[in-house]
Simulated scan of single mutants.
Amino acid sequence: MQTFDSSKHLIGLDISQYQGTVNFKKIKENGASWVICRTYGTDHRGNGDTRFEQNVKNARAAGLKVGTYYFATPKVPLDLQDARNQAQQFIDKIIFGTGNGNDFGDLIPMLDIEDDTGHVGEGQSIRLLKVSELIQWILEFRRYFEDATQTRLGIYCSSFFWNEQMRNGLPTANPIKDMPLWIAEYTKYWPDGKKSPNNFGGWTSWHIWQHREDGDGRYWGCESEKVDLNYSLSLEAICEKN
């Protein structure tokens, strides 16, 4: 992955209802350029993140660019109609939040793929799918989303998830490696001297890097004690939606 240089990267936060009431003006004043707001977490039965719509409105009013993400919970056994249903749920929530059927956010929308063990019902864990099945599910979600919105879809994941929990990861020919990558890899776990996130799954660069899960929420205007912190290479890179 590209070597990190804090002077050349922009700061962004990912926000959900767990941050409580958020002062987005303070986020902007403290140096962030953008936020990514959660649409749905692990529970897809209701109306999703309870603060999404308000977060989108307030973030934009503060002059921040706004992106969206959706926590995937694929059914087991593999069900491609489920992928289409979840993609449509993501689309509907974004439209409801932006108030415009042609507005899918300022940034590349992101599909969150990670270990959901302990968060979903028995028989529903993403880890019960074969790697090939998970890839099929992601590809169908992506196809449906991009066809319906004419907007490029990115993916959030960690090197640990792919390399360890997904049975030693994927081959270099990974068919989703062209999806813009939002990588989760926390510097607090790095050995001395490490300068950049790991290559994995065929990806050799990232669009967004979530480097902390324990940022000072109060400093950043959040009601919560902690907030995730991210870097982007440039606004142009993460706004490249088509």
Rank of each mutant, 00 (worst) to 15 (best):
P77T: 01
I138Q: 10
L80N: 00
I108F: 09
F104M: 10
K57W: 06
N102E: 06
L134N: 10
N47L: 04
A32F: 12
Q89M: 13
E146A: 03
K28A: 11
T50K: 13
L107I: 11
R84V: 07
A87G: 05
D92K: 13
I138Y: 11
F141C: 08
R45D: 08
A87D: 04
R143F: 04
Q81D: 09
I94Y: 08
L153A: 02
N102Y: 06
P109Y: 01
A148K: 14
V76T: 06
R84G: 00
E122M: 13
A61F: 11
Y144L: 03
D116P: 11
P74Y: 03
G97F: 10
D116Q: 14
W34A: 12
Q89K: 14
I108Q: 07
Y69A: 02
D112E: 02
T50G: 02
F145A: 00
L139Q: 15
V56C: 15
I126V: 12
Y40R: 00
E122L: 13
Y70M: 05
L78S: 09
G31I: 03
Q54T: 15
T98Q: 14
Q89A: 13
N47M: 02
G97D: 15
A148E: 13
G105W: 03
H44T: 03
Y144W: 11
R127P: 01
T73D: 03
H44C: 01
I135P: 06
G123Y: 05
E29C: 08
E53H: 02
V56D: 12
I108P: 12
R38Y: 07
I138R: 12
D92N: 15
I91L: 05
R45H: 06
I27E: 00
E29V: 10
K28C: 02
W137F: 14
